[in-house]
Amino acid sequence: MIPIDFEYHRPKAITDAIKIYQALTADNKDTVYYGGGTELISRSRLNEITPQAIIDLKNIPECNTFKREAGQIVIGSTVSLTAIADTPLFPLLSNVVRSIAFRTARNKITIGGNLAGDTFYREAILPLLLSDSKVVLAGGKGIRQVEIHEIVGKGMKLAKDEFIVQILINEKYTKYPYFNHKTTKQSKVNYPIVSLASIKVDDRIRIAFSGVCPFPFRLREIEDIMNNSAESPGERARKVIDLLPSAILNDMHASREYREFVLKQSLCKLLEHVERRVS
């Protein structure tokens, strides 16, 4: 039971969505874009957010695209996690999103929602960071294409009036060897305490993290350490800890110390996997 009321709009075109957004905000209405909506429904039920209008993007054709085209994988923002998990155009991405929530929830959660929502794990972003993906955004300034790295910080750096239309992944990245590993507190169905994803591009390991810090990330310095095969996996894992972009999370899912342990274990597992593959 959501106690508040809001307007609901379901435009059929990007330009319409933008126009509606502008009109609503001009009218001082707290307006949000809506994908799968699971987070919005949960949070407004708990009165944590009180949007006055929502714009459902699911009828916009560009947002529903999911195809391989001209050397790219194109994924519309309202494509469900299940669709991505079941269609392995990018196997690493399929694997990572398959570990989010559970299947019935994934039928509703969209990749755009996973990336742009408030829940900070945003696991779907890991393969995108690794593959230097591009993101098509639409907003007041029109449609623009940006590098994923440009909009990923401690939160998503989208303008208020912007929404994700599509994600573009260079197809070559779907062919590299990959690895992903998610650890939860206990039940498999839960938020990650450590989730990492990795691909090996031209003999160099790329790695991205979720659950470790209160935002997902990929750092060059960490990858430098990981690729220093002169050092043992354990040593490298220890050094990675020192380079993390914030203190390790300490919350009800796991203590900081345990997360650190799991992270080291996961990193060693990853290195073992990758380096055994090569040798």
Partner: peptide
């Protein structure tokens, strides 16, 4: 789909 996680208008 969980009926509690979809708006009727959707």
């Amino acid at each position: 789909i969980n009926a509690c996680h979809i708006l009727s208008v959707e």
